[in-house]
């Protein structure tokens, strides 16, 4: 399906998992958690599709789409940062990580406006099952964006000291993998909660 891209430009090297094994175990556990949450949403909806469809219309789809663009772009900057590290381009690493953090901050800002509107309208976890899921899922993800930004900030501080090079990019790759996971989760979450009906 994803035949839009071909082999990467560098010469093919031996098979290697970027980043640390421990972070991947962690990523898998997180993804399992979201898989359970996504399925719970989908199956809870199946029992009450009309209600879910009705309240889905009240969500701010533009904000959701904008946030998707922000996370994708944030992820892209972080890939560029990893590539810069592989080229030993120190400035490139810190600049791109900083841009990634900015995208995350913009995501949070959009989300806060969205929440302010919903909570201002008196919507809470107890309003109905749809809003319960909408708030729980997006808030759980929100916390992950924050954690991702904390990790990226730690990496940025290291990057400014020139910690990441073609010889040593393990830490950067680990943080990048986590940040991409945050992106990946939103890519499922956005159509599921905001659009599909």
């Amino acid at each position: 399906m994803a035949s839009t891209t071909s082999a990467p430009e560098e010469a093919p090297h031996s098979k290697r998992l970027p980043g640390d094994l421990a972070i991947w175990i962690f990523i898998l556990a997180e993804m399992l958690a979201f898989a359970v949450f996504f399925s719970a949403y989908a199956f809870a909806r199946a029992g009450n599709a009309e209600m879910f469809n009705l309240y889905q219309q009240t969500l701010n789809r533009n904000a959701g789409a904008l946030n998707t663009l922000l996370l994708i772009t944030g992820s892209w900057f972080v890939v560029l940062a990893v590539q810069a590290a592989h080229r030993d381009d120190n400035k490139g690493v810190s600049r791109n990580v900083a841009l990634g953090i900015l995208c995350g901050a913009a995501f949070l800002a959009v989300k806060v406006f969205e929440y302010a509107e919903k909570f201002g309208a008196g919507i809470s976890l107890s309003t109905n099952t749809f809003y319960m899921f909408y708030i729980s899922l997006t808030f759980f993800h929100f916390m992950h964006v924050i954690l991702g930004m904390v990790i990226l900030t730690a990496i940025w501080l290291q990057a400014r000291k020139g910690a990441y090079t073609s010889q040593n990019s393990h830490g950067l790759e680990s943080g990048a993998a986590y940040w991409h996971m945050v992106d990946l989760l939103w890519i499922i979450l956005f159509p599921l909660v905001y659009v599909m009906r």
Binding site: A29, L32, A33, F37
Partner: peptide
């Protein structure tokens, strides 16, 4: 307690075996 705890409690505690498995 409010109903959402049934979802939160079910989902997150269903994941509690993961750290033990780790």
């Amino acid at each position: 307690t409010p109903e959402y705890w049934q979802w939160w409690g079910s989902i997150f505690s269903a994941l509690e075996p993961i750290p033990f498995f780790a």
